[in-house]
Design a protein around this nucleic acid. Structure first.
Lengths: 341, 341
DNA sequence: TGTTAGCACTCAACCTTTAGGAGTGCTAAC
DNA sequence: GTTAGCACTCCTAAAGGTTGAGTGCTAACA
């Protein structure tokens, strides 16, 4: 059996309708809803075919049909081919320029949640292949030294080091010069043991400080652990009966709170890069267990070469894919624009 | 009418029982449950009195009784007089010493949530009357300057400043000395306009940098905005039927996600300091609207003179106050111990 | 051959009724 | 002051009945 034009239209009508109402869709509804001018009986025949093809399901005999994961997938694929959405009120809201990245991201998550009525998440941009830009040691106390490490992208890391011997300003200056001349501009891979031991030798009795600083540098460059995830609109989950089941909702809410559980999603969506930057996971396709009754749409944004972050929208399978994808695309562009200023 | 010994015992029995079961408690249950050896009829009489006194309620005729807010309040007050609870497994879990404060606090919230089955929150310690300890300006780029500001308690703040003119190392050194000699050891109140203009005058053409740095210092010392709140176990809310109502649960979950909404609670519990460090809010007593069907227990912890934070447990009114208060007390002591090392 | 009207059938959803039980208030007796 | 007993209330769960949306199938039609 083939999926001809008409079946496609009917499937689309079923999905659209189901997205709106959340109820199984019957043949009579479709017969009126579409401009095909077919009777409900004909629709019934077609629906039987669509079911056999696996695009729709019946929750029980004598209920209407609902889209299967396969059906959603087809719909989404079809839909993703087109449109660049009109710019909505988000623009204004975002352009109340926040100076702090953290605030901006939280704001984005919130705006998205309010706009879409789904749960949302956003990560801080991940910086890969980081290079060290600058190191500064300063004496704060008699026996405390502050190490400030700046890496590319102006990410700053502070570490307090305790020292036994008291260091005078001159020694500190020497150490600063030593560290900066050796390490600046290098990435994690480029700093090798040979260099380290050479530096330690030059540092003489202060070699342990050099060791501590290098540890801190490694930590700063790695930056993996710096992945912060902000969420918003978790409570929207309860708005969708199919997710509001106590057990499931509880797991989902937990996933959103224990943000670690979301990292898998982030990893996956970054790796499955497909050009558009937008990924759609329907039901079981998701890498996160607790979301297997949901659909997830993720977008990868990029502020600067190599600074990538992920935005995600999590909702029921009958998510308004159309709107969500459009919104995400708009948002990506706006983040782009925003950063260029 | 008076609240005599026997009424007190009966009230206590009702509350205990209700805490366990979550169901209204009948007279027959109490008659068997207590060691008073009274018939259900007598209990009924006493219960009628207790109701008149406002300590218990009937959800409807011919249902058992449940404690009113006033009843809970009495119970809690009574209970708070005693006990120092045995140390439980929490000790081990916490003593897997986390080096980072942030991780430690998240861990605490989680342990608490798992242990109590309620929703929990914890704030970073708030530092009041902060004093500036150290300022360091360093040139990172041709036209970017990094200002590192360390305040008492070793809280560090970084700010990037853009400059038009290029600054040589010598000028920078002078500015550093200027700033440190004038500002070190001062609190927000002690930095006045006179000092600022004097410094600007000395800085000559670089007065705008001084201005920027002072702004950053003000920001760093204020520290109010640094109040981070971590939550855990939000999903526990759904475990209690009286809170799991869609509407209410949704608002609650939102409160936990939009952590700003929790600050009122923190403020209030810090201000209502009553010596023990523990506060109990029952129903309407809470300062947070969305929690008026809950009970909230907060504890104030103090790491160092002036570094106070708040821990909160949010659950149904039929919360196991006994256990919660005990747990919080233990926890406070352990945080104390932990910090001393 | 594709489309349609019609009909019998199914089944969740909703309502009503019923019975049962938990709990109460009141009264009268101890 | 305490208790047994009884009539009463009202929630709950189960059982039965009705409704209506939706189906599959068949037969007729263009």
């Amino acid at each position: 059996m083939q999926l001809d034009e008409r079946k496609m239209k009917i499937l689309q009508a079923i999905i659209r309708n189901y997205l709106e109402t959340g109820e199984p869709v019957g043949s009579r509804t479709i017969s009126k809803y579409t401009d095909l001018n077919l009777s409900s009986a004909t629709i019934r025949n077609e629906m039987a075919d669509l079911e056999e093809l696996g695009y729709i399901l019946q929750p029980h005999t004598s209920a209407g049909r609902i889209p299967s994961d396969k059906g959603y997938r087809l719909y989404v694929d079809k839909m993703m081919e087109d449109k660049e959405r009109e710019i909505d009120e988000m623009k204004e809201m975002l352009l109340e320029k926040e100076d702090k990245m953290e605030h901006l991201l939280k704001q984005v998550a919130k705006v998205l949640a309010v706009n879409t009525n789904y749960a949302t998440m956003i990560t801080t941009p991940q910086i890969h292949h980081n290079k060290l830009k600058f190191i500064q040691l300063s004496r704060v106390d008699a026996n405390q030294i502050l190490a400030v490490i700046v890496v590319e992208g102006n990410v700053i890391k502070n570490t307090m080091l305790s020292v036994n011997e008291e260091l005078d300003e001159e020694t500190l200056l020497k150490l600063n010069i030593l560290l900066n001349t050796h390490l600046n501009g290098l990435s994690l891979e480029e700093i090798n043991l040979g260099m380290i031991s050479a530096m330690k030798q030059q540092a003489g009795i202060h070699s342990d400080i050099v060791g501590d600083v290098i540890d801190a540098v490694a930590e700063a460059i790695k930056a993996d652990e710096d992945l912060e995830i902000y969420t918003s609109g978790t409570n929207n989950i309860l708005k969708y009966p199919e997710l509001a089941d106590k057990q499931k909702a509880s797991e989902l809410i937990n996933t959103f709170e224990e943000k670690k559980l979301l990292t898998e999603l982030v990893q996956d969506s970054l790796s499955e890069e497909n050009g558009t930057g937008i990924q759609v996971y329907i039901g079981d396709e998701t890498p996160v267990q607790s979301m297997k009754d949901c659909s997830v749409v993720t977008a990868t944004y990029e502020l600067e070469e190599g600074m990538k972050g992920t935005i995600g929208i999590i909702g029921p399978k009958r998510m308004d894919y159309d709107k969500v994808v459009g919104t995400l695309k708009t948002l990506m562009h706006q983040l782009d624009d925003l950063y260029k200023k």
